[in-house]
């Protein structure tokens, strides 16, 4: 057998084996993915990584979130809902100024879920913290308990609701991590907008998936949690804070 022919057969065999095994690998991948009918799984833990050194002084994430979720105000800033907000920090000693987006941190041990009397505040298996609009009685205990001021009480009737995002007067709501988009395999609206029109500061992904960018970066770069002292293991992490 000539060396060329041997090499050809060798490559051919490798290609055949590859072709035979590829679907199996693909199947493993598919098995880890989830169809829309399937319940959320603890195999995933959705999270965000926000590099605030790249956080330009813009509010595209805020605008995109509120547009996506139909969160509109009534011109009453004290009672209007805010799912995500731009927070400005200034160091008391050095005067160093920073800005960052703050929203529900999707804790592993969410205080809002602990205190909710009816179980309306709940944490999905994949780490997304939500409010069940059917069982929220509007007691606002979760607002008292949240360390991040992330929740809003709906103080008046809402209009212009989006089909994916039910809302209602007298109940509490907060960032859903755009769960309706995540379940379709998309990224949250804030992340999409930041990467398109903003400072490209936000990364969304599965904290459990070794192939995900967020996983690799959290593994190789420093990051912090807001109020890490509370040991809530937040799903939202910050860099440069």
């Amino acid at each position: 057998m000539s060396p060329d022919r041997r090499r050809f057969l060798g490559w051919g065999a490798a290609a055949a084996a590859g072709a035979a095994l590829a679907p199996a690998f693909r199947l493993i991948e598919l098995a880890q993915a989830r169809s829309p009918e399937e319940a959320a799984s603890a195999l995933q833990r959705w999270g965000l990584l926000i590099d605030i050194t790249k956080c330009a002084d813009c509010d595209v994430c805020v605008t995109a979130c509120h547009e996506e979720n139909g969160v509109t105000g009534h011109g009453r800033p004290e009672t209007d809902a805010q799912w995500i907000r731009q927070v400005r920090l200034r160091d008391k000693r050095t005067g160093y100024a920073q800005t960052l987006p703050l929203m529900c941190q999707h804790c592993e041990h969410p205080p809002c879920v602990d205190v909710c009397p009816t179980g309306a505040s709940f944490r999905r298996a994949d780490g997304i913290v939500l409010v069940d609009k059917h069982t929220c009685i509007g007691c606002r205990y979760c607002v008292m308990a949240c360390p991040y001021g992330a929740r809003s009480f709906i103080h008046e009737a809402v209009s212009g609701q989006k089909a994916d995002v039910p809302r209602g007067k007298g109940m509490v709501e907060s960032c859903t991590l755009c769960v309706h988009r995540v379940d379709r395999g998309e990224t949250p609206a804030c992340v999409e907008a930041c990467n398109r029109d903003g400072g490209k500061a936000m990364v969304f992904g599965d904290l459990n998936d070794p192939s995900a960018e967020i996983y690799r970066r959290l593994r190789s770069e420093p990051s912090t949690q807001v109020r890490a002292d509370l040991a809530l293991n937040t799903g939202v992490r910050y860099q440069g804070l």
Partner: peptide, 25 residues
């Protein structure tokens, strides 16, 4: 003073026993 006083029945039928509010009921 609840946001949804009409849902009192929900508070009476759905319990999260980690909540001190639920215990108080």
């Amino acid at each position: 003073d609840l946001g949804r006083p009409d849902r009192l029945i929900v508070a009476m039928t759905h319990y999260n026993f980690k909540s001190i509010f639920a215990w108080n009921i």
